[in-house]
Design a protein around this nucleic acid. Structure first.
Lengths: 321, 321
DNA sequence: TGCGTCAGATAGGCAATGCCTATACTAAAC
DNA sequence: GTTTAGTATAGGCATTGCCTATCTGACGCA
């Protein structure tokens, strides 16, 4: 069965004759007759009663007519439908984020995404960098939000922003008495570390190694949230990303920048070298970037001193709501 | 766009490769590649990203996939669906009946029809014989229930039953005093006649002409029901078909057979000489016949004397309910 | 780094098949 | 009877889908 056969059939049924239908379909009448005969053979049913120079639908023909119309109309709409779908952002995006970004940027980015593309669906994976890279290479993930370095020449990255690392301290911590805190001040200070499986953990490690700080790691954990609680209980200090600082509404920790060549991570969007990010992917990347910018904006608005003013003991850096 | 292109597309999308898809579709890989390329050209969109030896769906491809599956599944089901429809009696029957039959047989026949074929639809036309014959020839009506004679060699008829004509009288009519009534007794009796446009009107006319009865026509009407009322009011007598007698529950008229060579009409099913009645048509014809038989049956059961017993004055022939 | 393997694209020939013209046949109209 | 209109059939042609052979590039392995 082929679509043109169905087209011919509908034309004959509607025009009431092979010749008229042939004219309507811009083919010769014998060609059309042939195709109808083929269709009848395939279905094992006569579709038309031939009454001399007139024809009538058989029962099988009457049964076929609405179905043929349906198939033709759906097939005919396919082209415009998929163009519209792409234009309207209908579709599913497979995205990935690392665990040290997802909790802070994903909620807001998702909200923006669904506001802009209500008919889109997003399939998310929160995982370590290696796993996301694997997903990209295996074509399971279209785009991932993670942080440099990414050493795999199958992956293309686009920098989104730099995310500075801040020192997290308990409110009464000794270091808060200092006017400014430098990397060397962290030597021999009890430190809550992130597992090195996280790229952030490794980045912090490298930072300490480069500055020849040898922090006294009293705890090593998988979770930034655990770190925050440990710090607030006075178990030690830690380095945490600014995006976490900006979204911490708990008021249990104090955060300070590191003076000098301060630590930071570069957040990027990553995709397969040979794939062009789809429209939805590009939009998602933009919204992650927007979300970070918006966090910064709100922070400046509600507590500008955190970014420019002199460091004072007990200054609280959060409370952004 | 052709169905086999959609088939190939779905196969590639599902198997994740052109070669695998080609094996699944039992064609060579280049053939399949060609068709995919043609489809992409027609849609103006790439459907797959070619990544070395692997492929991934583009946004357009993701949009196409469910639609292609839908079209293919509907096209694939067509054959079995129409076979099932015909078997299950899904469909529409165009039938016609003359006005001197329809009121008496149609309600019961329709009830039987919908009981047997609940998914069928019937398109009915109640009209004079000439109009029904025209409808059959114009292929608008598949089968008509009417009465002989039908003089048109494009029409095939199948006799269903003979319907005798009974004399209708008002309850106190003089003729009821006779033991039996013969045609000649109708001479000069006031007569309510049916318009000759009705075949039944003409049949009655011929009957009178043949027996050399020259009834005194006091009223000529279009409607058997009007005749019945006129008779009940004592305006005259009339000849009416048995099927009307058998369904008259009003108790306002008395009916008597005509002794001797009694008048009757032959009810037939009629269709176009070159058309074979469809299954639904054949079933409908059968149910009309059944309905008449059933009326007779009920009449014999509830008032057997009407058919065999001696004629007595004032005998009521109806009350069948 | 080089080689083998695998997968997709390309090229060119072949065959199937859909379309065409011509014609026969039939029914309806005149 | 003749003409006209419409469908079926036959045979040639052209399209086009399919095939084999080959090329190219990617991946895996040594």
């Amino acid at each position: 069965m082929e679509l043109h056969q169905l087209r011919y059939f509908v034309a004959v049924a509607e025009s009431g004759g092979f010749s008229k239908a042939a004219r309507r379909c811009y083919v010769a009448q014998p060609s059309l007759s042939q195709q109808i005969i083929k269709l009848e053979q395939e279905l094992g049913q006569r579709l038309f009663e031939r009454l001399g120079r007139r024809i009538a639908l058989t029962e099988a023909g009457r049964a076929l007519l609405p179905r043929a119309r349906l198939v033709l109309s759906e097939a005919g709409n396919i082209k415009s439908a998929i163009v519209e779908d792409v234009a309207a952002g209908v579709g599913t995006l497979s995205a990935g984020l690392i665990p040290t970004i997802a909790p802070y940027l994903l909620p807001g980015a998702l909200k923006r995404f669904y506001a802009g593309y209500p008919r889109a669906r997003i399939s998310l994976q929160e995982n370590l960098t290696d796993m996301l890279v694997r997903g990209i290479i295996d074509l399971e993930i279209e785009v991932a939000i993670m942080s440099l370095p990414i050493e795999n020449n199958l992956i293309t990255t686009e920098p989104l922003f730099d995310d500075p690392l801040y020192l997290a301290l308990s409110p009464g911590h000794e270091l808060l008495k200092m006017r400014e805190i430098r990397a060397k001040d962290l030597r021999n200070v009890p430190f809550i570390a992130l597992e090195e499986d996280h790229c952030l953990g490794e980045q912090i490690n490298n930072f300490c190694y480069e500055r020849q700080i040898n922090p006294e790691v009293v705890c090593r954990t998988w979770n930034l949230s655990t770190i925050q609680h440990c710090v607030s209980f006075g178990n030690g200090v830690s380095l945490v990303p600014l995006m976490m600082v900006l979204t911490d509404t708990s008021n249990t920790c104090v955060y300070r920048p590191i003076k000098g060549r301060s630590p930071k991570r570069t957040v990027v969007a990553a995709w397969h070298r040979d794939r062009r990010p789809s429209r939805l992917a590009r939009e998602f990347i933009g919204m992650v970037k927007d979300e970070y910018a918006s966090l910064l904006e709100r922070a400046k608005k509600y507590s500008p001193s955190r970014f420019s003013g002199p460091v004072r003991t007990g200054l609280r850096l959060c409370k952004l709501s």
